[in-house]
Amino acid sequence: MAHHLRGSSGTAARPAPEVLASFEAATGFMPVDEGVAVYAAAVEAATRTGLPLLEIGSYCGRSTILLAAAAREAGTVALTVDHHRGSEEQQPSWEYHDSTLVDPEVGRMDTLPRFRRTLHAAGLEDHVIALVGRSPQVAAVWGAPVGLVFIDGGHTDEHATADYEGWVPHLAAGGLLLIHDVFPDPADGGQAPYRVWLRALAEGFTEVSVTGSLRVLRRSGG
């Protein structure tokens, strides 16, 4: 199921071929159709609000490429929040662990070097501000509005709820909330993002597009 945001021309914005190629070449898990939807939402939010676009959970920068490209087009910036130590499912012995991302000196995951190389290769470093830290700590000291919040960090209820509660207060009226890995059927995946999606709807957000497991919602007003 997929329906997409529409721009002033009546068609959804799509990333340039070189941006899409950089996205596909980057380490990560997001499918192309969901990536295209992220880009369309980012362009719409940046154009509508003129505010920065914020991503929680950047991993190696695959989806960051799309936010950065949209920010570049709109004359704003992408903000990324990640401690770069990997989420729970990326730790050793878990399904999504990548041993090449372990810092041999400290013995822990460190995706920041790969993240920076990804943005460098895409020519987008100047359009990203990387906030390296845990989402609730960064949110607690953040003091400016953003035009988009993309929740794609830890997938436990604790982490997903903290991301929602920490960053939604900073989302401008009319801004977009993106939630990744929303699976209504427990057989398809974890339920924490799904519960955050239900909460957002209950708290007045309006769903504007669905692509795979990606949900795009708009905050009222603006």
Rank of each mutant, 00 (worst) to 15 (best):
E24N: 13
G50Y: 14
A41C: 11
A68P: 03
S63M: 11
R72F: 05
A40Q: 02
G61I: 00
A26S: 12
R72I: 07
A71D: 12
C60E: 10
E73T: 14
T27H: 13
V38C: 08
R62I: 00
R48W: 13
R48H: 15
E73I: 10
G35M: 04
E55K: 03
G57S: 07
R48F: 12
L54Q: 06
R48D: 15
E34Y: 03
P31Y: 04
A68T: 14
G35F: 01
A25H: 04
C60Y: 06
D33S: 14
T27N: 10
Y39G: 02
V38Y: 03
P31N: 14
A25D: 08
S22M: 04
A25S: 15
A46D: 03
V32C: 07
A25E: 06
P52W: 10
L20C: 07
A46F: 05
E34A: 10
L51F: 08
C60R: 05
G57L: 10
A71P: 05
S58N: 10
E34D: 09
R72H: 12
E73D: 15
E55A: 00
S22W: 02
L51W: 10
M30N: 01
C60D: 11
C60N: 11
E34S: 07
E24M: 13
V36G: 10
V36H: 06
I56F: 10
F29K: 07
C60M: 08
Y39L: 06
A40F: 06
T64N: 03
E44S: 13
G35W: 01
T47Q: 15
V43E: 06
A45M: 11
L66Q: 01
A37N: 07
S22N: 13
V43I: 14
E73C: 05
Y39D: 01
F29T: 09
S58P: 04
V32P: 02
S22L: 04
I56Q: 08
C60G: 07
T64G: 03
A71F: 13
A69M: 07
I56T: 11
P31V: 09
V38A: 07
I56Y: 04
G57E: 08
E24F: 03
Y59A: 06
R72G: 12
Y39F: 13
A45S: 12
I56K: 06
A40Y: 01
A46I: 11
L67M: 10
A70I: 09
S58K: 02
A71I: 13
G61E: 00
V36D: 09
T47I: 08
L66S: 02
I65T: 14
A41F: 06
P31K: 10
F23D: 01
E44P: 00
P52N: 10
T64K: 02
G35R: 00
A45N: 11
L53P: 05
V32Y: 07
F29Q: 12
A41D: 06
Y59T: 04
G28M: 06
S63E: 06
R48E: 15
L51M: 13
I56C: 14
A21V: 01
V32A: 13
E73H: 14
E44V: 07
G28A: 08
A68Y: 13
V38D: 03
P31T: 12
A41R: 02
A46V: 11
A42D: 05
G61T: 00
L67S: 11
A68W: 09
L51V: 09
L66N: 00
G61D: 00
A74D: 04
V43F: 04
R72M: 15
I65D: 00
V36W: 01
P31C: 08
L51G: 04
R48G: 08
A21H: 04
